[in-house]
Amino acid sequence: MNIQPKLMYTKTDEWFDPASGAMGLSDFAQSQLSDIVFVEIVVAVGEMVAPGKAIASVESVKAAAETYASVSGKVIAVNEALAGNPETLNNDPYGQGWMIKVEGADASSLMDATEYTKYCEERAH
């Protein structure tokens, strides 16, 4: 499983990059969903997001899921390219698979890579 050391994670399997303000779906989440065939970002630039607010709707061949904001903040960018290439979420969840970027976010309540690795391992059993 791919868990990036510099990112922060939520219990609902989203990641957040404190350096860039980007957030998306973790590798664990994409592997659980299997082949993703649809993604729609449901927030726009300028909107405020907060933990628990849905930022994207994702459908795979067998399941559907909401992606929630990992932190609070104002949306400064949306990955428009994702809608046309939903498989990016499977292939590159931490890179081209970013969903939105926010500014002024506080990530201190999130799990770091070590904690998240443990969290994923617990659920694997």
Binding site: V37, E59, K62, A64
Partner: peptide, 13 residues
């Protein structure tokens, strides 16, 4: 195909 958009999978959403 594309059944994940339907209510038996996507439920109330």
């Amino acid at each position: 195909t594309l059944t994940a958009r339907e209510q038996h999978i996507k439920r109330e959403r």
